[in-house]
Simulated assay, not measured.
Amino acid sequence: MSPIGPGRISLRSLAVVLLLSVGLLGAYWPQISPVILGQDQAQASEYTYIADLDFWQRTERETRVEARAHFSLDYDLREVPLQLGDWQGQEVPESNQEVIILLDPEQYVQRLYQNSRGQYIWLSLIGGRSSQPFHAPDICYDADGWQYNLSSTAFPLDGGGQIHGLWMEAHKQFPGDDFLTEHVVFYFYLFPNRNRELKDGIVLFKLTSVRYGTVEETLALHADFVRQLFSRATQP
């Protein structure tokens, strides 16, 4: 048997050291990646947008939000995940072509999400580079004969800060029904940057559900959904 020379011992030792180093790097990467790569690179999966209650004018509730999906018209809004925490979604294309003709959006996404408790939320994403696709949802409800209350609220996010939106509780008794149909709607607008120019695009983020328990309990359900897509909010 030929003896193992110093060169072979060094190579073997080097291989062992490299394997140990890779293992340690993998174990501690979440803690050290912000230091090595910088915070922005380490959080490359977070996308930053400006959120506000209104698209016509800037309000004092404007915030910078970090999102876990793209909400820019430079991307396909259908890339927003169908699986969001406990929520599983399915595409439900808009069947009323009059809506599409009236709004003429650049992108229009409509989905129905359900959680493990059997509760449903509709997600609507409407994107455009003109004012035509955007009008407050209460205008549609009012035109269709719904009675409603409109107010604003803020949902706290897991990483800090709050995202502000308008909410509406609407009810209507349809012909032949002996009960009221009740909806709770929460919505806000997203801009790719603080310039908020139409040419850069705007996305309306809207959630709609029936009322589950009280309005407050239903809004808490909406807040849980929002937190699956938005992690943190700061001053713009």
Rank of each mutant, 00 (worst) to 15 (best):
P175D: 14
A44N: 07
G128I: 02
Q39V: 09
D76T: 03
D144E: 15
S45I: 03
G160C: 10
Q90A: 10
T48G: 00
Y120M: 13
L25S: 13
L157Q: 00
A67S: 15
R61L: 12
Q132T: 12
L102I: 02
R78D: 15
G89E: 06
V92F: 05
Q83C: 07
S33R: 13
L14H: 07
D144G: 02
A27C: 09
L14M: 13
Q162I: 01
R232A: 11
E217S: 09
E62L: 12
Y212K: 01
K199W: 06
L11R: 10
W87L: 06
Y47M: 09
R232H: 12
Q173H: 08
G7M: 10
M1P: 15
H164C: 01
F205P: 03
A220R: 13
W167M: 01
I126T: 13
G38S: 10
W146H: 05
F188S: 03
L198V: 00
D224K: 10
L125P: 12
Y49F: 13
N115T: 04
A233L: 11
E182A: 05
V92Y: 08
N96G: 03
W122F: 04
L84H: 01
A170S: 12
V22K: 06
V109D: 04
V226G: 07
T59M: 12
G128D: 02
K199R: 15
S21L: 14
V80W: 05
